[in-house]
Design a protein around this nucleic acid. Structure first.
Lengths: 340, 340
DNA sequence: ATTATTATCGAAAACGTTTTCGATTTTTTA
DNA sequence: TAAAAAATCGAAAACGTTTTCGATAATAAT
């Protein structure tokens, strides 16, 4: 019941802890016979090295920290999964924290992780984080940190992002390819980068296919996570823009609102109007017709984020100062039944 | 840049590390003057005690492990959140792992957590876990562990569960209270305890209100996470059980399938048939009409699970052997528009 | 038979903290 | 003024591991 340690093994075998330690790690300077004796006893006693002592000695914990703005969220939950699973493969465990989209909490939580001496940190910025001193301090202290999804261009470090513009471009292109000639867009508020980038992608796709841009059919949703806002835009389009034959909404929720409302108004989807969502939420599979959308590969993103952090941790340990990179994860258009 | 330790502070102040350590912890046997000197310097140098050394010395890490069958799941994600947030309040951080509903992985991950010397473990059993030796070993070793949600009655330890039977009882009662006289039930496969308990609750509610139980209107869905299965049952009811005026499905997904299909068949909801789901998934708010359901309070469950683990950790440290308890989290009927 | 190599081991320091306990100094009490 | 009490400090051990480096023993080369 009392802990079994190197010392205990050493004593019962009449050898030193040094030899026991080395035997278990297959060092070359311990004879095969003692090796097998040590291993046998360790196995028998179910010896597990004390991780605190190991960490103290080696100055690494094999634990990383992950700060997420919001855990109960399809996309972010997938990121967590991607991080955890790839970390596990490399022998790392991950401590997850949720910042609630708050700068103050984000700051506190970074402190908590540093206090625990994690080997590295994965961070997605809270919405109201605009000062970055707390982050640059960490970078200056040489702690490996990589920003994912919600990043800031003014922070110099490794990053992993979605290519929102390209994704929106492809979504719009799919509508064009399927024959739409007049495509509306539902965007969000002006500020977040994702809104801007998706809008840009939409515009570029139109331009590249010689479809004139018309701002009268670009609608701004106050809340991009609102089903109702989608419905309202659908009404507006039905009443005042009868010629619209395709809609690209910047979230699946908006798209679903549009879809439901248009059905109520007896518009045939996709015959009369095609609809594209964005994110590939679960609910896109249960609307009628099923919603075409763009898959945001959260899992993949989590994987890549860990991978680059892992590299940075190893480089840091070796004293190598590799240049920072920004990885863009490609997205994929998912064609279902709301588009032709 | 080089780490600031107790020793460094002690040297620059010309005192011993012992005194520095005690000064920072406000021990009574260090003078106010040295205390303030030490604290000032520690503050200035931004001293952070090395957590590995602390853990090695005190034999506690202030880290717990959390094994979840499936992270990308509304209910479980809420559990994670509840655990993390309440752990944070007590100074604990949590390492999360996903067992993929696999016994083998569950076993491995328990090992990983033990290797990291976590202070306690929160575990929800994988679907195919039927042997419990790996868990009883942990219990015998005196490592605090509490089972949540998916438990086994044959394991003796602290547990936190949902009261499925009562929840189903209340859901059925709501249908009865709103005037339904002939209530169908869609259940899952025979095996999982949740299926059995919800079915029991349904039956008991009928009995308590003098409604005869009729097994011809109890339907078994092969896959309770299938929208399509719900649709099929709806067809069956529409064709062969015209007198059914209420349906209690054991998941929101089944309920949504039923709802969508009945609408297609021109059945008025809830005028002709009322529908109750179970879980309060996000999608219940975007169906038309919005789905009445039973809220499974994942967050609360996570909170309670941590709380009881925390107690057990403290008791264990003090050498107290408290009797095990099983906490049942009450659920809540959410009345929306699919019931009268 | 001597020297050079190689194989095998252990002493010891180090990682950074916490805590006991005894030593010293200062203050209080009689 | 002497004895008792309180205040203040530090030496040292302990937590359990890793790793360097020197020592010894066994083997190979000359």
């Amino acid at each position: 019941m009392s802990k079994v340690t190197l010392k205990k093994i050493a004593e019962t075998l009449g050898i030193s802890t040094a030899t026991v330690s080395k035997a278990l790690k297959d060092y070359a300077d311990v004879s095969p016979t003692t090796k097998s004796k040590v291993k046998a006893l360790a196995e028998k006693l179910n010896f597990k090295p004390n991780s605190y002592a190991q960490s103290l000695r080696t100055q690494e914990s094999k634990i990383i920290g992950l700060i997420i703005p919001q855990i109960v969220h399809h996309f972010f939950a997938n990121i967590i999964l991607g991080v955890i699973k790839s970390a596990e493969k490399e022998g790392y465990l991950v401590i997850t924290l949720q910042s609630d989209e708050s700068y103050d909490i984000e700051k506190e939580q970074l402190e908590l992780l540093l206090d625990k001496n994690v080997d590295g940190i994965l961070l997605s910025l809270a919405d109201n984080t605009v000062r970055y001193k707390h982050i640059s301090e960490i970078i200056n202290d040489g702690i490996p940190i990589v920003l994912y999804d919600k990043i800031s261009k003014s922070i110099e470090c490794n990053k992993v992002v979605i290519d929102d513009k390209k994704a929106a471009y492809n979504a719009t292109k799919h509508l064009i390819d399927s024959g739409c000639k007049r495509i509306a867009h539902i965007r969000g508020r002006l500020k977040p980068q994702t809104t801007i980038d998706r809008f840009k992608g939409y515009k570029e796709a139109l331009k590249a296919h010689n479809i004139p841009f018309d701002k009268s059919i670009v609608f701004e949703a106050k809340n991009i996570a609102s089903f109702e806002d989608g419905k309202n835009v659908a009404d507006e389009i039905f009443l005042n823009h009868k010629d619209v034959d395709g809609i690209f909404a910047m979230t699946d929720l908006l798209a679903t609102g549009v879809l439901v409302r248009l059905k109520e108004l007896n518009v045939k989807i996709p015959k009369d109007i095609s609809i594209m969502g964005f994110s590939n939420w679960f609910l896109t599979r249960i609307t009628t017709p099923k919603l075409s959308t763009v898959d945001q590969p959260g899992y993949k993103m989590g994987e890549e984020a860990f991978k680059i952090l892992f590299e940075q941790i190893n480089n840091t340990r070796k004293g190598i100062k590799a240049p920072y990179k920004t990885i863009e994860i490609p997205t994929e258009v998912i064609i279902r039944d709301s588009t032709k």
